[in-house]
Amino acid sequence: MFAPIGIFDSGYGGLTVMKEILQKLPQYDYIYLGDNARAPYGNRSFDTVYHYTLQCVQWFFDQGCPLVILACNTASAKALRTIQQNDLPKIAPDNRVLGVIRPTSEIIGSYTDTKKIGILATRGTVQSESYRLEIDKFFPDIEVHQEACPMWVPLVENNEHQQPGADYFIEKHLQNILQHQKDIDLLLLACTHYPLLMNKIKQFIPDNIKVLSQGLIVAESLADYLQRHPEMEQRCSKSGTRAFFTTDDPNDFNHQASIFFGEPLQSNHVAL
């Protein structure tokens, strides 16, 4: 029976997470869905993000996915808990939906010596306070400083992130957070688009500050989850297939997605 693992993002950024998951766990079948027609999610209300995300989760379940990864920080921040607590028991009590915030929060303490970290994210993720709350559960001694970077996703999605014009917006937000707290020794890229800005970010920060992206963390967390939950692991089919879907134009998606995924891919349109 075809029972792929679903990977969801509001657009393309989740492909940076999927790429790491495929390297770590290539044997499983995967379906990726980008809700590009309604992206970006970062500036939308909690209620809107919740309804969009739930609609997409239901679509994954309809495709036979027993497990869905929200490879989107905004969806994880604004929708995951409600879906897990309120919706799953009603619509699919045996299925599971996981996010990217908790796995990151569980291990982030091992990357900082000063116990002062910076979170770079969309406005929606920052306003949700999800990272601050989750990190405090595991590392109450860590001081969390957040900076919303609303221009970073549009820069990446318009393929302007490597151009000189991007420097102003990248340097501006890095200066904002580092001026606020000079002892920060770790910056977390809390948006799956931001790894594509890694080289630019490193140009504007001191060498002693580590920059952490989430793909590998989420991949290792998923491997650990499947090992700890054999009943779910056995439900996931293993033919090594990958399928890609978008709610927008597949041709546009294919072109842009290769920037994030690192290789060409073919997608199909989904109407939600």
Rank of each mutant, 00 (worst) to 15 (best):
Q146F: 07
A79Q: 05
M18S: 11
F60G: 04
G109P: 03
G6R: 04
I108H: 04
I117Q: 04
D248S: 13
T16Y: 04
G11K: 08
G13C: 13
K90E: 03
S128C: 07
P154S: 12
Y28P: 06
V153S: 07
Q227N: 13
A190R: 09
K182P: 00
T192P: 06
T48N: 05
G215P: 00
L196Y: 08
Y131G: 04
Q175C: 12
V17L: 13
L155N: 07
N268V: 05
L80C: 08
T241W: 13
C149N: 11
S110K: 11
E143K: 15
D141F: 05
T48F: 00
I108Y: 01
H229C: 04
I184Y: 11
N254T: 13
L272I: 07
I91L: 10
Q162I: 04
I21R: 01
S237Y: 11
H161F: 14
R96H: 14
I142Q: 03
V211K: 03
S110F: 08
A39W: 05
C72V: 12
E134R: 08
T125N: 07
Y50H: 01
V49H: 01
L196E: 03
H193K: 11
D252I: 12
Y111E: 09
S45M: 04
D94F: 04
K19C: 03
L272V: 06
T104A: 15
Q256P: 03
D224T: 12
L186D: 00
A243P: 02
R228F: 00
V211G: 00
N208D: 08
F61I: 06
H193M: 13
F46T: 00
I101T: 10
P93C: 01
L216V: 11
D87A: 09
V126C: 12
P89C: 02
F204H: 02
K137H: 05
K90V: 11
